[in-house]
């Protein structure tokens, strides 16, 4: 650590729980944040300011005006430019702390890229908004012994739980299967920016302890908070379940799915489709689609509107089809316009 770094992180170094040895570790730490919405953007800002050396932010979505109320890394211009969240987040983190290696990845985390994207990380932070990705993270993290921290929020309520593979219950010990059917989402039930920040703070606090080698201070608890009505409750997470499919029997079905089936984006009347990995030339596609409907494109994404549908396609062939929650319709539209 040089003199400038010692000064920059002085208040954190003076905190006895971290000290200079802890800061040295943080400067070399590699963290991946999956999902860069309200939780993930808070994680990113907090870790960059804390001096975590390498921060990868993975997100499949783009900035919209309705994100700005709670997603601290984004500004009006990002929404106006239709920037992917991962790109806008990387740029913002570089402005916050230029010595941090911030790397935005515009992608959907799947079984095919999980090794490449998470394999080198010391710790994974959950900033996702869906269960499919969380169960994939859990399978990968348990399989590889990488700590990760679950966090989620909706309305004024949220919860956080650290997973230390081999030591504490994993997500599937606590919740063996993802919920079926519609769940309250931030789109349907709304969400306060203070609850997402609070949940993200719990996650980052545990992340800092783990990264600094103080895993012993991480409580195997589920913390629930209702910031509007009620308060904070901490419930002991159950012990590891010897019959847990993931950490007990070491079966990892979420790692085995080859390519992801279309995913309904809950509460958004939208479906994400990726029939296969493509390499799309967005400029060429724009020329092709312009006679059919309204098209806006930049180097990161192309938006194509044919009422009542709005389709956003990314260079890797993934598309978000708005205007339907029917995966069949979405697939058909995808095939019709993107091949």
């Amino acid at each position: 650590m040089d003199a400038a770094e010692r000064e920059r992180y002085s208040r954190q170094i003076r905190f006895s729980g971290i000290g200079e040895p802890g800061q040295e570790i943080l400067l070399r730490a590699r963290v991946v944040i999956v999902g860069c919405g309200a939780l993930g953007s808070f994680h990113g800002a907090a870790l960059a300011r804390a001096g975590v050396g390498s921060i990868t932010l993975i997100d499949r979505d783009y900035v919209e005006p309705s994100n700005l109320q709670r997603q601290w890394l984004f500004e009006e211009s990002d929404a106006a430019d239709g920037l992917p969240k991962a790109v806008a987040a990387e740029r913002c983190l570089a402005r916050i702390n230029s010595s941090v290696r911030a790397h935005g990845v515009v992608a959907d985390l799947t079984s095919s890229n999980v090794e490449e994207l998470l394999g080198q990380s010391h710790l994974i932070l959950d900033g996702t908004d869906n269960f499919e990705t969380r169960y994939l993270i859990n399978d990968f993290a348990v399989c590889r012994g990488i700590p990760w921290i679950y966090g989620a929020a909706v309305g004024s309520y949220g919860l956080a739980m650290p997973v230390l593979p081999g030591h504490t219950a994993c997500l599937r010990c606590v919740y063996p299967d993802p919920p079926e059917g519609a769940q309250p989402t931030c789109e349907t039930a709304g969400v306060l920016n203070v609850i997402t920040s609070l949940v993200a703070s719990y996650q980052v606090a545990d992340a800092l302890k783990i990264l600094c080698g103080r895993q012993d201070l991480v409580q195997p608890r589920i913390t629930t908070v209702d910031i509007w009505q009620g308060g904070t409750r901490q419930i002991d997470a159950p012990p590891r379940d010897p019959d847990c499919p993931a950490c007990g029997r070491r079966q990892f079905p979420y790692l085995e799915e080859s390519l992801r089936a279309p995913v309904r984006l809950c509460g958004r009347n939208a479906v994400q489709v990726q029939e296969r990995v493509l390499v799309l030339d967005l400029a060429e596609l724009k020329t092709r689609l312009e006679p059919i409907g309204e098209v806006r494109a930049n180097e990161f994404a192309l938006r194509f509107i044919v009422a009542p549908y709005e389709m956003t396609v990314f260079p890797d062939g993934r598309a978000i089809i708005k205007g339907t929650s029917d995966t069949g319709v979405a697939r058909s539209l995808y095939a019709r316009y993107f091949g």
Partner: peptide
């Protein structure tokens, strides 16, 4: 008695 659902938002 606390009922604790998994929550998805983020």
């Amino acid at each position: 008695v606390t009922i604790l659902p998994a929550v998805s938002g983020g």
